[in-house]
Simulated scan of single mutants.
Amino acid sequence: MSSAPEALIQLRGVTKAYGQGQASFLALKGIDLDITRGEFVAVMGPSGSGKSTVMNLLGCLDVPTSGRYIFQGVPVEQLSRDQRAQLRRRHLGFVFQGFNLLARTSALENVELPLLYRGENAKSRRQAAQAALAQVGLEGWGHHTPAELSGGQQQRVAIARALVTRPTVLLADEPTGNLDSARSHEIMQLLWTLNGEHGITVLMVTHEPDMAAYAKRLVHFRDGLMEHDEPNPHPGGQGAI
């Protein structure tokens, strides 16, 4: 028998508490979760369920109160703040509901930003940003500012910015939350393609079942606990082949 693939991400007994004393609130109450390379996972749950807290931990934006977070064999909870920042820059790409683009900056320059922070030279930044825009279907749109783009196009720029560093994992927090239905499905088709054809591991928080339907695995949180963890029998959402 072949052995199971080694987990890219492992959470073991992870808790997260906010506040102290009587004001203390336990947002996560002991989470065990394995994610292997190449998965497309939708994290779902009502407001206050713990799904966003989990994403913050996975994105190295916060640390567990207790428990272990292992990323590619590295115990993240033992890293310093600077080491976690290095892990974020090298391995993680982020896509947010609000796009978070610089308004007076062109699409190309927005996509270049993570490489600027890495200290890469102007030529390599520009080439990588142009390739990332082409990857999300925006070749030739690099000179436009966000105000000159539709919401769907802005989110594509945001995804290109996340991809330009060639991340191991793409973390998407309600990536379609500010889009209409048609643009939402366009973005989900893009994430589906990036996962299926390019092998990028995608972790997405969403409260919308029709968006979660694109994922290959569905993880449901409630009251700080993982309520369900199950494969999606028909991944791909509407219109997927």
Rank of each mutant, 00 (worst) to 15 (best):
S2P: 15
S3R: 13
A4G: 10
P5A: 08
P5C: 13
P5N: 04
A7K: 07
L11N: 14
L11E: 09
R12T: 13
R12H: 06
R12G: 02
K16N: 14
Y18S: 11
G19A: 10
G19F: 13
A23T: 12
S24H: 14
S24G: 10
L26A: 14
K29C: 09
G30P: 12
I31D: 09
D32Q: 02
R37N: 07
G38R: 11
E39T: 00
F40M: 09
F40Q: 03
V41R: 00
A42G: 01
V43Q: 00
S49V: 05
K51F: 05
K51H: 12
T53E: 10
N56R: 07
G59Q: 08
G59R: 09
L61N: 03
D62P: 08
P64C: 05
P64T: 04
T65D: 07
S66D: 11
R68M: 10
F71H: 00
Q72K: 05
G73H: 14
Q78W: 06
Q83Y: 09
R84A: 10
Q86E: 14
L92G: 03
F94H: 04
F94I: 03
V95K: 00
V95A: 00
F96L: 06
F99A: 04
F99N: 07
F99W: 01
N100L: 11
N100R: 12
L101T: 00
L101A: 05
A103E: 12
E109L: 12
N110F: 09
E112S: 07
E112G: 03
L116M: 12
L116R: 14
R118F: 08
A122K: 09
A129S: 07
Q130E: 15
A132F: 06
G137C: 03
G137H: 03
G140I: 08
W141N: 06
G142P: 10
H144P: 07
H144V: 05
A147G: 15
E148R: 04
E148L: 02
L149H: 12
L149S: 08
Q153N: 12
Q154D: 07
A158G: 01
I159M: 00
A160E: 12
A162I: 00
V169C: 06
L171P: 05
D173N: 11
D173V: 02
E174F: 02
T176L: 09
T176C: 01
T176R: 02
D180A: 02
D180S: 04
S181N: 13
A182D: 15
Q189F: 02
Q189Y: 02
L190S: 01
W192L: 11
N195R: 05
N195V: 04
G196W: 04
I200V: 13
I200W: 04
V202D: 03
M204V: 02
A213H: 06
Y214D: 04
A215T: 03
A215H: 03
R217K: 00
R217H: 08
V219G: 01
E227A: 15
E227M: 14
P233I: 07
Q238A: 11
A240E: 01
